[in-house]
Write a protein that binds this DNA or RNA. Structure first.
Lengths: 241, 241
DNA sequence: CCAAAAGTGTTTTAGCTACACCCATGA
DNA sequence: TCATGGGTGTAGCTAAAACACTTTTGG
């Protein structure tokens, strides 16, 4: 990719991306017994935002989102799903975008394409926290994990997008096979339980949870064990196939 | 609305609608024991399509979809939900749109904005069949109900959109309260069962279905009865509130 | 031996399935 | 009185909830 292509703010209107169409991703990771999401901070603005981007003129929408995630996390083959389209007029706040453009030392004349109104397609992604190498894009000075209960105020309607992603996931927890994507290949039942609890935001009954998982037939028990704690060593489990 | 505004094909690029953004609706109705959807046919082209449209520059996405449905069915307050965003490059088929524009006697030069690539936000709607007064838009010569098992070949990826709408609805049948939107205020248990069967595309157990509905607490039984058939008169039911 | 966490067993309840049965109606 | 479809009763199965219990480990 040419240097110019790395910075969306330098594009002229409609030159390389579809106008009026954007995407934002809520990227979930699990670490330290907590659910976290990726948040970017823009240079010298104090503005926080979800990692997002734009769709190339000859690029599939889903492919564009994968490209965006690849650039920020280094990962391909990410578990990714559409969540909702945010298309209200009131999400158009050119002052906010102007602030970002100016902070990057670019000319923010009134015709700059980033100042236009955008419809944003929201996605959520589930990724393996430990495999990620974070990289901010050229407009941002950081891309960091934030625990769900410590996400800062985000620009535009991005906090709403996070809520919507959570709701969507909560609805179909089981069929999304949370653990497959958020946990390492092998994990303890406790870890899996914590993932569920983090999404549901409530405690689940330990012994019944264990039985439900085991009888589901989706995971197998490895005889290897994880030692080092002052209690019975737990089995390690992994999902089948 | 001015006359010009009634015909999207007459707009210049970006003059009144957001470029690259469209919507399509799968409108479900229930009649004659069958599930049906609305399909439009374009003048002199043999092309069939889902009712869709574009988003005004100062119009909320959801509002645009409601406007589109109002124009074609005369109904406001329609039950409406997003379903999926179709954003692949291969759905861009300018030849098809060119055909429609020409058949309407308009100039289809290569820069016509309808020939651009569009991302389409798919919605599904559940409406009360008997309340609808169908009206084609200015580009179409008909807007008709088609039984789900008799939907013709539609343009672009519109058949795929129908499939996606069905899948989405099937997943959460119960929480969508199908009957509330698809049936008249009062209905027999048989009708409600037929709605479920139409969506699931399989028979459900009559007596157990009845019990499940009654114990759900979502509907009440009216003592009024529907007479005229050679069998026990069924109760009429209605949803609470 | 004790505390802590993992894992198993058991009882109760709730809901669904399948099927038998009775009821009301028009021809 | 019979065919047709509406409505109820009930036995059997399965899954989840609640809780008591045993096991393994480090200190």
């Amino acid at each position: 990719m040419a240097k110019q292509k790395d910075n969306p703010a330098e594009y002229k209107r409609g030159e390389s991306y579809l106008t009026h169409v954007a995407f934002d991703s809520v990227v979930f990771g699990f670490s330290g017994e907590k659910l976290k999401i990726l948040v970017m901070e823009y240079h010298n603005t104090g503005l926080f935002a979800l990692p997002g981007g734009f769709v190339g003129l000859k690029e599939n929408l889903n492919a564009a989102v994968r490209r965006g995630l690849k650039e920020r996390t280094g990962l391909s083959n990410i578990y990714l799903e559409q969540c909702y389209v945010f298309g209200d007029v009131k999400r158009h706040q050119p002052e906010v975008l102007r602030k970002i453009i100016k902070a990057n030392g670019l000319a923010a004349d009134d015709k700059h394409w980033l100042l236009d109104r955008f419809i944003s397609v929201a996605y959520y992604a589930l990724i393996n926290y430990s495999k990620v190498k974070l990289q901010p894009d050229t407009l941002s000075d950081s891309c960091e994990w934030y625990a769900l209960d410590a996400v800062p105020k985000l620009m535009l309607d991005h906090n709403l997008i996070v809520q919507k992603a959570l709701e969507t996931l909560r609805k179909n927890l089981d069929e999304k096979l949370l653990g497959t994507n958020l946990l390492p290949l092998q994990f303890t039942m406790k870890q899996l339980q914590q993932v569920y609890e983090a999404f549901l935001d409530e405690k689940v009954h330990r012994t019944n949870f264990q039985r439900r998982m085991l009888t589901s037939g989706l995971l197998i028990r490895n005889e290897k064990q994880f030692l080092g704690k002052a209690h019975k060593a737990p089995y390690l489990y992994q999902f089948i196939k």
